[in-house]
Design a protein around this nucleic acid. Structure first.
Length: 220
DNA sequence: ACCCAGGTGGCCC
DNA sequence: GGGCCACATGGG
């Protein structure tokens, strides 16, 4: 199974997603950190709380009281860890770039990626989400859904993050809008159908999927 | 009462 | 370089 037909099928089924759901590039960064291993529904509450407390800016989060921040982002879980890491990341940005994200984002993709990866709390998926949806540069995000779908559709058996990212980028046109939409569509599919306990009966990719059995025992 | 969510970092071998 | 584990709330 090749990638482009999968993308087209998902696009026809779900329509354009216009990701990332955020008002500003900085809100993308905050959302990407907060949504690690937690549902977007909870992240929305936390971001609303941040907005209501005038904390959704680089400088205010760089200086916020940690206990206060923990209370505000509590709905996401991991609030102790994430409060500390979110503040640390904002402090790094503020000290090096002030409020000027454009300066940070003016770097090349490899340089930007390396710099962001060096910060505690930013792993490959979060960094690539920031590059793709906040900096608007073409890089392909690999998340749990992407890996699962690639395996179940028989696209590739590759398992490591970098291997999968290079595979997707190598088998797709280098196109920002396509990368942004494809990842959003994969998440939409993953939320509704291709979960750890699959719901294959009405999945838009059920014909392409190598796991024909409905509710079959499936591992990643 | 379980299981899971748009991961990450630390530690072990 | 790979395999565990803690981190924690909210929804099915």
């Amino acid at each position: 199974m090749t990638l482009l037909p999968i993308y087209k099928r998902l696009l026809r089924h779900f329509g354009k997603q216009y990701w990332w759901p955020a008002d500003t590039p900085f809100e993308v960064i905050v959302g990407a950190i907060l949504t690690q291993q937690t549902t977007w529904k909870n992240v929305e509450k936390a971001i609303d709380n941040l907005k209501g407390n005038n904390l959704l800016s680089i400088s205010s989060l760089a200086k916020v009281n940690l206990k206060h921040l923990e209370k505000i982002i509590r709905p996401i879980g991991y609030f102790h860890q994430k409060a500390e890491r979110l503040k640390g990341i904002c402090r790094y940005i503020y000290e090096n770039y002030g409020e000027d994200l454009a300066k940070l984002f003016s770097k090349t993709i490899p340089n930007l990626r390396e710099e962001l990866l060096s910060l505690k709390g930013l792993g490959p998926e979060t960094v690539d989400s920031i590059i793709l949806y906040a900096a608007n540069k073409p890089i392909f995000i690999i998340d749990a859904y992407t890996k699962r779908i690639a395996h179940r559709l028989g696209v590739t058996d590759l398992n490591k993050y970098e291997d999968l990212r290079k595979y997707f980028e190598g088998h797709l046109p280098n196109d920002l809008d396509l990368y942004q939409e494809f990842h959003a569509l994969i998440v939409e599919l993953g939320k509704n159908y291709c979960k750890t306990k699959p719901n294959c009966t009405s999945c838009p990719l059920r014909k392409e999927c190598r796991f024909k059995a409905v509710n079959a025992e499936v591992t990643n």
